[in-house]
C-alpha cells in the first residue's frame, strides 16, 4: 500500500511539473541568467526582456538622441542603439543624487568616442516618480539624457528592481532582439571603468 501511495504521489508530482512547464512554454517565457538575477521574456516584442513601453520624449533633442519620432508611447526595442544602459533612479534617493554627476560623465565619455557614440545610449527611469519629479531631477543635475517617469513602478517591477540606483544593460543580439547582459544594484565609482565593463560584457565591436 505504501509503495502504491508513493507511486501515486510521484506520478502527480511529474504531472504537475509537466503542466507547469507547458504553461511556461505557452507564454513563450525564456529565462536569461544575468548578473544579479534573472528576468523572463514575454512572447511579444523583444525576446529576452519584458516588453517595456515608455512615453515618447517631449523634446526633439531626446527623440533625436534615441532615434525616435512621433508621439504616444514607444517600445525600448525601437531605440536606435546596439547597447542601452538603463538607470533606475529616484529623485528621493540620496545615493542616486550622489551618482548623478558620474552618470552624466558616463554619457560624456560615450559622446566623445565616435566609435561607440551611436552604439551605446543611456536612459533614466524614475521609479515611483511623477513627470514633475523627473523634470525636477533633470533640472537639478542637468541630466543630458532622456528621463522617464515610472510612477506606478510597472517598469521597475518588470525588471525585478529592488533598490536604486540600479543599472541595467541591454544589447541587440545576433537575432536582432534585445537581451539583458548586465544588472547591478548600486552605483559605480568610476565612469570610465564602468564604460569599459559595459563594452566588454556587451561584446560591442
Amino acid at each position: 500500500m505504501e509503495g502504491n501511495k508513493r507511486r501515486i504521489v510521484s506520478t502527480l508530482c511529474i504531472l504537475l511539473a509537466v503542466s507547469l512547464l507547458s504553461v511556461t512554454a505557452s507564454f513563450g517565457a525564456e529565462s536569461i541568467t544575468v548578473l544579479g538575477g534573472s528576468v523572463k521574456s514575454d512572447s511579444g516584442g523583444n525576446q529576452g526582456i519584458p516588453t517595456i513601453e515608455l512615453p515618447m520624449p517631449v523634446s526633439e533633442q531626446g527623440k533625436s538622441y534615441l532615434g525616435l519620432s512621433g508621439t504616444g508611447n514607444f517600445k525600448i526595442g525601437q531605440i536606435k542603439s546596439q547597447v542601452l544602459i538603463i538607470e533606475i533612479y529616484s529623485l528621493y534617493c540620496p545615493h542616486c543624487q550622489r551618482a548623478a554627476s558620474r552618470v552624466n560623465e558616463l554619457l560624456r565619455l560615450i559622446q566623445e568616442r565616435p566609435d561607440i557614440k551611436e552604439k551605446i545610449k543611456i536612459i533614466g527611469i524614475g521609479v515611483n516618480n511623477s513627470m514633475y519629479e523627473v523634470e525636477s531631477y533633470r533640472e537639478r543635475y542637468k541630466v543630458p539624457f532622456p528621463l522617464f517617469p515610472d510612477l506606478t513602478m510597472e517598469v521597475s517591477q518588470k525588471f525585478n528592481v529592488r533598490g536604486t540606483p540600479t543599472f541595467i544593460g541591454l544589447k541587440v543580439n545576433g537575432k536582432g532582439m534585445l537581451e539583458k547582459f548586465y544588472f547591478a544594484e548600486g552605483g559605480f565609482q568610476d565612469a570610465q571603468q564602468f564604460l569599459m565593463e559595459i563594452i566588454q560584457l556587451s561584446g560591442l565591436k
Binding site: S90, Y92, C93, P94, H95, C96, R98, V127, N128, M153, S156, Q157, V161, R162, G163, T164, P165, E185, G186, G187
Partner: peptide
C-alpha cells in the same frame, strides 16, 4: 549593497 536605496515593495 551599502550604496543603495532599498525599495520596499
Amino acid at each position: 549593497m551599502g550604496m543603495l536605496c532599498i525599495a520596499v515593495l
